[in-house]
Computed example of a mutant assay.
Amino acid sequence: MSAVTVSARTPSRTGPVRRRPHVGTHLFLIVMAVMWLIPLLWSLYTALRPKADTDKYGYFSIAGTYNLQNFIDAWNQGGFPTYFLNSVIITVPTVILTLLFASMMAFAVSRFSWKFNVTLLIMFTAGNLLPPQVLATPIFELFKLIQLPYSISDSGTLLNQLVGVIAANTGFQIGFCTFVLSNYMKAIPTELTEAARVDGAGVWTQYVRIIMPLTRPALAALATLEVIFIYNDYFWPLILIQSGNRLPVTTAINNLQGQFLSNYNLLAAGAVIIVIPTLIVYLALQRQFVAGLTLGASKG
C-alpha cells in the first residue's frame, strides 16, 4: 500500500482538533448560577418596596412604588456603623494572621524534609474535620481561665473580647489554608530555593523573597475565601462575646426584628447591606481569585 493511500486514510495529527461543545456543563452552570442569584435578586426586589405596597399588592407583584427608604431605615435602626467596624476589626487581623501562619507552616512542610513534616500537615488538616460546635465548650472554658490585665481586657479574660474571636477564627482557619498552600508550594521547582541557598540565602530570605511572591495567586484566592468565611461567621462571636456593641455586622439584622411583627422588607434591606462588602471584596480580587484557582489546571 502506498504512502499516499496510508496518509489519506490516516487522520492528520497536526491538523486542528475539534472539541465537542460542552452543552451539559454549560447548562448545569447556568442553572446553578440562576439558583444562586434568585435569592439575592429577590431580597433586593423586596428591599426596594415599601411594606405598605407589599401588604397591599402581595410579594409576587410589581405594582407600587420603589425607593431606598428601607435601606436608610435599616442602616439607622440596625446600628450598622458600629457593627461594621467590629467586623473589620475581626476580619482583617484574622485573615492576615491566618495567611501568615499558614504560609510559614506550608513552607516548612513543603520545602524541607524533616521527621515530623507529614505528621504536622496531617494534624493541621485533620483539625478541619472537627466541627466548631464540638469544641465550643472547651474553648469557652479555656478562654475563661486565661487571665489578662484589665488594662487590656475589661473582663480580665479572653471572653467578651474581639481578640478572643480573632484567636478562635485564626485557629480554625489555619488548617485549611496550610493544606492549600503546602500543595501549591510543592509545585514550585526546588531548584529555585536550592540556587538561593547556594548563593547564601537563609531560610527567611527564601521564604520572603522567593516563595511568597510566587504564591501570590494562591494567597489572593485564599484571602478572598477567608474574608467571606470570617465576615459571615456568626458562631464564634455569639459564643465568646456577651456585649451587644461588640458583635459583628452579621448580628445587626437581629436589631431589625420586631417583638410581635417582622418587617420583611426592612430585613431584606439589612441583608443586602450586609452582603455588599463581600461582593466588593470578591469583585476587587476576582482576577487574582480565578488565577489562583486555575493556575495548575493546564499542568500535566
Rank of each mutant, 00 (worst) to 15 (best):
N76C: 13
N67E: 09
M104K: 07
G58W: 07
W75S: 04
L85N: 07
F107S: 02
P132S: 12
G78S: 09
T65F: 09
V118T: 07
L121Q: 10
L99C: 04
F107L: 02
V92Y: 00
R49H: 08
D73A: 13
L129D: 07
D53A: 04
V92D: 01
G79P: 05
L100H: 12
M105D: 00
D53C: 01
G58A: 09
T82Y: 01
A136R: 01
M104C: 11
M105W: 06
T54G: 12
V95W: 02
L135Q: 13
V92L: 10
F71H: 04
L99P: 00
S103A: 03
T119N: 06
T137V: 15
L99F: 06
N76L: 15
L97N: 08
N86C: 08
L100W: 14
V134M: 11
L135D: 06
Q77R: 15
P131C: 04
A63T: 06
L97T: 11
F107E: 00
G58K: 04
A126G: 09
P132V: 05
S61Y: 00
L121T: 09
S110I: 01
V92H: 02
A102W: 07
K56T: 14
L48W: 11
P131H: 09
L85T: 09
T82L: 15
G127R: 02
T94N: 03
L142V: 04
G79L: 03
Y66A: 13
A108Q: 04
P132G: 08
G64K: 10
M123D: 10
L85G: 08
I96N: 09
M123C: 14
D55Y: 13
P131I: 04
S113R: 15
L85V: 10
L120I: 14
Q69K: 12
G58L: 00
L85M: 12
L97A: 15
A136V: 06
T91A: 01
W75E: 06
T65H: 13
I90F: 00
F124M: 07
G127M: 03
G58M: 06
N70G: 07
G127S: 08
K51F: 09
T65W: 05
Q133V: 12
V134I: 15
Q69L: 13
T119F: 15
